[in-house]
Computed example of a mutant assay.
Amino acid sequence: MNCLEFRRRLTTEPRSRDPELLAHRDTCTEGCAAFWQRTQRFEDDIEAAMAVPVPDGLADRILLAQATGERRTQLGHRRAWMAMAASVLIAFAGVGMLWRYTDQHSLAAMSVAHMPYEMASLTLTRPMTDDDVEAGFIGRATHLKGPAPAMVTYVHDCTVGQYPAVHAVTRMDDEPVVALYMPGKMDSTPGTFHRGGWDGREVQLSGGTLVILAQGASHKAMDTAERGWRAAIDGSNLTASL
């Protein structure tokens, strides 16, 4: 089992105790153990959100309402009120759980969660050759259509959440800027975000989604990185429209 199979399997079966799955978790050196721990914590949060406490005496009140025939009309209104209150409570709990699940599974959240295991890449300063940069993208079945940006110091195949990705770092005026490209992911919503100390932006390209991340880098550095990777991934003809 490789890292991609492990993370896809864990995304669909987070509580699985399959021996092959656990064996990969315990032996992988690419951060799969930390991914497993984050998945378990998220499942714990969902279970906690679903554990809505029942009001004291609710069962007694319901039984009393069912047993008292001469107050059918009044109790009918009372049951309707209680059902409405319970529906509202369930609706609020469901909306809260759905929002939390959606937020935790957003591309911004998964991109930021990926970074603690890649912080060493931000310290690299030696530029890579164009061939080495191209090789990193070929590993994700992607060929660059334009020249790589200047000062690329890191390229690596990785996984962001459940998405296969290329992780790259460029240095702009000695400021490290991260680029995470997920080929084939076409349902993202372009825009900017600030999360967990990271400034970020999602960029929709013709063949996938590009996420630009930086901590304290200038807007100019992030703009330059975005333009460079747009031109490299989608083709140099795009630079004229940026």
Rank of each mutant, 00 (worst) to 15 (best):
D187P: 00
G136D: 09
D132Y: 06
T153A: 02
D157N: 06
L122T: 04
H167G: 08
Y154A: 01
S121Q: 02
H114P: 02
T153V: 13
Y163V: 06
G208F: 13
A168E: 07
P147T: 12
T142N: 04
S188A: 15
M128I: 00
D173V: 14
M186C: 02
L144V: 08
V133P: 10
D199F: 09
D199E: 12
R201I: 00
G136I: 11
H114N: 09
V166P: 08
M172Y: 11
P164D: 06
A135S: 11
D157P: 12
L124I: 05
M115D: 00
V155S: 04
P149K: 12
P147Q: 13
L122Y: 12
V169T: 06
M186I: 10
H156I: 06
G196S: 11
L144M: 13
D131F: 00
A148T: 11
H167T: 05
G136A: 06
F193G: 05
K145M: 15
G139S: 07
M115N: 00
P147C: 09
T192K: 15
D173Y: 14
G161Q: 03
P147Y: 11
A148W: 06
S206G: 10
S188D: 07
P164S: 04
P183R: 12
G191V: 13
L180P: 09
P176N: 03
L124Y: 08
G208N: 08
S206W: 10
R126C: 00
Y181F: 15
V203A: 02
P164V: 00
M172T: 13
S188W: 00
M151H: 14
E202C: 09
K145E: 15
G207Q: 12
A135K: 10
D173A: 15
R140A: 14
A179R: 13
G136P: 10
D173L: 15
M115R: 10
T129A: 06
T142V: 09
T125L: 03
G146K: 10
D187L: 01
V152L: 02
L124F: 08
G200I: 00
H156P: 04
Y117V: 02
D131K: 08
E118A: 14
H167F: 10
G196V: 07
M151L: 04
S121V: 00
D199G: 11
V203D: 02
T142G: 05
G161H: 03
V169D: 01
W198Q: 08
M119S: 10
V203E: 08
M115H: 01
M182K: 03
D157A: 09
T123H: 08
V160G: 02
F137Q: 01
W198N: 10
M172R: 15
D130P: 10
H156V: 09
L205C: 05
V203W: 02
M115A: 00
Y163G: 07
R195S: 09
G208V: 08
P164L: 03
D174Q: 15
P116T: 12
A141F: 07
M172F: 09
M172C: 12
M172D: 10
T189H: 13
M115I: 03
W198V: 09
M119R: 15
R171W: 01
V211E: 09
M115V: 02
P127M: 05
E118Y: 14
G191R: 13
H114V: 00
Y181H: 04
E134P: 05
V133Q: 06
A179Q: 12
R126H: 01
